[in-house]
Nucleic acid binder design. Structure first.
Length: 271
DNA sequence: AGAACCACCTGGCAGC
DNA sequence: TGCTGCCAGGTGGTTC
């Protein structure tokens, strides 16, 4: 489920349990994620304190004293804090064992996630070409307008391209375009300055609303049977094909776009 | 340079 | 009940 809000909720949920703790071991049960987990990760991270937990786009960054553990949740990944003695499930691929008897455990059934290592002062290749963070002040209508000027693909594909903007996946691209009243098939460089401002605002509000909703159940990050706090959300268009638009009542339409499902209201969203 | 498509993997669900 | 086919929240690499 992880797009920017889910990763941010994960970060906030883990933070109080992980920060200032020392890593005393790493248990790798299944190294074959999107890329192999480095075989020497336990050695690299051993005995180091977790100084900070950052997020860049959909990547979580465990900043250690000398290096960084980079975690991506892929399509199906989730992280929880558990007692180290808690038995691991089928898809629990790696534990980062902490010095207080707990561990950070990654579950990822589809194994599209990643756990990688970055040396101090190294800019990892995966992070090197990432675009703007949509929740920063620099991201506004003018920025979006300028960034789309020469882009001839659809605005939806543009929003989902992490080289331009990070953190917006299929769900929040659909939802943001709905809230801005913009048709997902609009060619990006046809977006007016005025509508760029509406879209930038819709993106911020959609992401922030979702973070606020998920943040209300952060306590679920601890304990053996809790789900990460982002499990239940309702959407305006995503997953609602043929159902009435919550604004105008006309049926929500489903269309394939760049091999992804695109949901929109043909009445509320115009090219 | 930029856009379109494929691949990686498993689980869940609809339809038969 | 069990099989088949299709779908899924991401994204780097390849091809055009």
């Amino acid at each position: 489920m992880p797009e920017l809000p889910e990763v941010e909720i994960t970060r906030r949920g883990l933070l109080p349990h992980a920060r200032h703790r020392r890593i005393i071991g790493i248990v790798i049960r299944q190294p074959r994620l999107r890329w192999p987990i480095p075989g020497n990760l336990a050695t690299l991270a051993h005995n180091q304190r977790i100084l900070q937990l950052d997020r860049r786009g959909k990547y979580l960054l465990l900043q250690l004293e000398r290096g960084t553990i980079i975690i991506h949740l892929g399509m199906s990944g989730s992280l929880r804090i558990l007692e180290n003695s808690e038995p691991a499930g089928l898809h629990d691929h790696i534990d980062i064992v902490l010095d207080n008897g707990s561990c950070i455990r990654l579950r990822d059934p589809r194994r599209f996630g990643a756990v990688l290592w970055s040396e101090p002062n190294e800019i990892h290749g995966l992070l090197a070409n990432l675009g703007i963070e949509p929740l920063t002040d620099e991201f506004d209508g003018e920025y979006l307008f300028r960034a789309t000027r020469t882009r001839r693909n659809s605005i939806k594909a543009f929003l989902m391209d992490s080289r331009h903007i990070v953190g917006i996946g299929n769900i929040y691209a659909n939802e943001s375009l709905f809230h801005a009243g913009i048709h997902p098939g609009l060619i990006a460089d046809k977006l007016s300055l005025r509508r760029s401002a509406a879209l930038a605002q819709a993106i911020r509000e959609t992401l922030n609303r979702s973070i606020a909703a998920g943040g209300s159940s952060l306590r679920d990050f601890t304990g053996s049977d809790g789900n990460p706090g982002y499990f239940q959300q309702h959407y305006f268009v995503y997953g609602r094909a043929t159902q009435p638009c919550l604004r105008c009542g006309n049926p929500v339409r489903l269309q394939r776009q760049n091999q992804r499902s695109t949901f929109y209201c043909p009445h509320c969203q115009k090219k």
